[in-house]
Computed example of a mutant assay.
Amino acid sequence: MADQKLVEQIEAFVGREYGRVYAWDDVNAPMIRHWCEMMGVENPLYTDAEFAREAGYKDVVAPPAMLQVWCMGGLDNENYAPGSTDENSFEVLKIIESYGYPAVVAVNTELTFDRYVTAGENLYYTSRVDSISDEKTTGLGTGFFVTLIMPFYSKGEDGNDEKVGELLFRVFKFKPAHVAKPEAKADKAQAEKPVMKRPLPGVSDDTRFFWEGCEEGKLLVQRCTDCQTLRHPPAPVCIKCHSFEWDSVQASGKAELYSFVVMHYPEVPPFDYPNPIGLVELEEGVRMIAGLVGVDPKDLKIGQKLQVEFNRFDDRQTLPQFRPVAG
């Protein structure tokens, strides 16, 4: 049962509101275009200003799913635009952590949209602690679900700012299930802690060939047998000609680093941190997401040459990972 002092402290946070976080830049066409390119979105409303004007808008509009992007801090999550609040809307997590709940994991987000935002608008959001659950026990452990509501606004020239959407963001602050409880017997406390294993991938009729290839040290890419288009991740139908007929070809394993992220927090076992994850472009032209090994995250560079290697984990799964190579 949760400490009553903790419960009283965190209940006081419910309803607390935090100040504005401004966007660094106005909604703009280059960012919209880059986002659409990365996501494979081809709606001309987002990229063709003339088409957008004919549809009744002043300029191109941003895909609704970009709403959260405009006010992000950048690589440094705290690097907010001038004028933004310096308050930490997740300060309640520090309170919970001080009572012995060290881990955190994002549970879910929900975006709702009131209208399109148009190139040239400037956005900001505020935050409100919407709810904090009673102590809950899940497969991850025991802790509290903390939910924030973040309404987004467009700044009006006359001071009449307009709400354009809202983000619900929920995290779980918890004691990991594998951590021994303080009241455990001395002999159990000395027992070896269970080793966390990597989660197994979901395997379907469409993806089974890929994972079986990994077990054999082969990087297989799905190919449409009608138009010869390669595709990854595997899918039941060709994205180009819509044929259901396919086979697979073995890739060379040579690749370039197209993009990457480095995960720092939260630290979820059994992964090592910092944890670099790459979006790699194979020599054959398709892209896939994979772990990066044998490199200091600070040395990663877009365009870096990579080579696949297959690594075995927990004696139950083999994963393709990529290692930088000279040149």
Rank of each mutant, 00 (worst) to 15 (best):
G253F: 03
F209L: 06
F172P: 01
D76M: 08
G100N: 11
A23C: 11
E256T: 10
T138W: 14
V21F: 10
V280T: 01
Y265P: 00
V325L: 00
K298S: 15
G285N: 09
L45Q: 07
T85S: 12
P194N: 02
V325S: 02
N311V: 11
S154T: 07
D272T: 11
G40W: 08
K155C: 08
M38I: 07
K181C: 03
Y101N: 06
Y258S: 00
R312I: 05
G165H: 05
F90L: 13
F209K: 03
N311T: 08
Q222F: 08
D48K: 05
E256N: 06
L6H: 04
P266S: 03
Q9C: 11
N275Y: 15
V61R: 11
E216A: 06
V286D: 02
S131A: 12
E216N: 04
P270N: 14
D205N: 15
A103D: 09
N88S: 12
R20A: 12
C71L: 07
V286Q: 01
Y101H: 11
E157P: 08
C238L: 13
K197Q: 10
E91Q: 07
V129H: 01
Q9P: 10
S98L: 12
P199N: 15
A55C: 12
C241D: 03
A106T: 14
R115F: 02
I302V: 04
K175M: 10
E166K: 08
D158E: 10
C36Q: 04
R208T: 15
E283G: 06
E267H: 10
D76A: 12
G285L: 02
M1P: 05
E54W: 09
P276R: 07
V21P: 07
Y116H: 12
Q68H: 11
K305C: 00
E284G: 01
M263V: 14
M39P: 04
T109M: 14
E162F: 10
P176D: 06
D299Q: 10
F144T: 07
S89W: 01
L6R: 06
V41N: 09
H242E: 14
V237Y: 06
A255I: 00
V41D: 08
A103E: 04
A191M: 07
V117F: 00
A119P: 01
P274G: 09
D206Y: 10
D314Y: 02
L45N: 07
V325A: 00
Y125S: 11
E166V: 13
V293I: 08
A106N: 15
N88V: 12
D158H: 01
G202K: 15
Q317G: 09
A23K: 04
